[in-house]
């Protein structure tokens, strides 16, 4: 118990003093996760909407695949990206292994199916409400997609948040393709795992508190934004 208290007080001290090492890890974590989530959103939302609205051979299989890929095991993704980016791999020539870019790629693969699958459901639900009206106004299914994305923006925000949650909490894949190199690819989750194995509970705890705080802060900010916007539009 005494160790825990000491660790906690050191953790708070590190946070309050804006420890540069800690700040570097937090900064890199946010850079990697936010970049991955932004790119995944740009891919996943239109992809989910297209699977929801367009009729094509294999659509049902695509829906099943999207839903199944939501539960992709991070270590498997890490392994596949590792093999692809390693020197002997097909993308080895780019020299991306053990860089933040490799970590972003791994997170995009993990997060995109989550955003796409949740977006598909949001768009499908919205279309059941809008179908007759938009068809009556002369909209085709493909032309309705941007309208549905715009009108479903608040619900889609939840899908993006789910993706962000996955990205910030992920450790297996980024550890494999990033290598957890100090000052290069060390992010909060990999640092926590390392510090715990070293027995430095204070830094691990500080990182844990920050990780939790960031998740809560972003979730709360998004919810407040969503509530206010919905109130304005009374949706």
């Amino acid at each position: 118990m005494g160790d825990m208290t000491a660790a906690l007080s050191t953790a708070v001290e590190l946070i309050v003093s804006l420890d540069p090492h800690l700040a570097e890890i937090v900064g890199l974590s946010l850079y990697v996760s936010l970049t991955a989530v932004i790119i995944s959103t740009l891919i996943g939302v239109p992809l989910g909407a297209a699977v929801s609205m367009l009729r094509f051979p294999g659509r049902k299989s695509a829906i099943i695949a999207l839903n199944a890929l939501m539960g992709l095991p991070p270590v498997v993704v890490g392994l596949v990206v590792y093999l692809a980016l390693s020197r002997s791999g097909p993308l080895g020539v780019f020299g991306l292994l053990y860089t933040p870019t490799a970590m972003i790629i791994a997170q995009i693969i993990l997060v995109t199916p989550i955003i796409a699958a949740l977006s598909r459901q949001v768009i499908t639900d919205l279309w059941s409400e809008y179908d007759d009206q938009l068809t009556s106004l002369g909209s085709s299914h493909s032309r309705a997609i941007p309208t549905l994305i715009f009108d479903g923006r608040f619900s889609l925000l939840t899908a993006v948040l789910a993706g962000f949650g996955r990205a910030t909490a992920e450790v297996g894949a980024v550890m494999m393709v990033g290598g957890n190199i100090d000052h290069v690819t060390r992010v909060m989750t990999t640092a926590i795992a390392l510090e715990v194995s070293k027995g430095d509970l204070a830094l691990a705890l500080a990182l844990g508190i920050i990780l939790l705080s960031i998740s809560l802060a972003i979730g709360a900010a998004a919810q407040i934004f969503k509530d206010r916007s919905e109130l304005r539009n009374s949706s």
Binding site: Y130, D132, Q133, L137, G138, T147, F150, D151
Partner: peptide, 26 residues
């Protein structure tokens, strides 16, 4: 042709923008 439904479906935008949207589709 046009149709008005028993329960109107309004898009999440202003009244003016709802009409503008219909015109853009036409």
């Amino acid at each position: 042709q046009a149709m008005v439904f028993q329960r109107p479906v309004m898009l999440r935008r202003s009244a003016r923008a709802n009409i503008d949207y219909a015109l853009s589709l036409h």
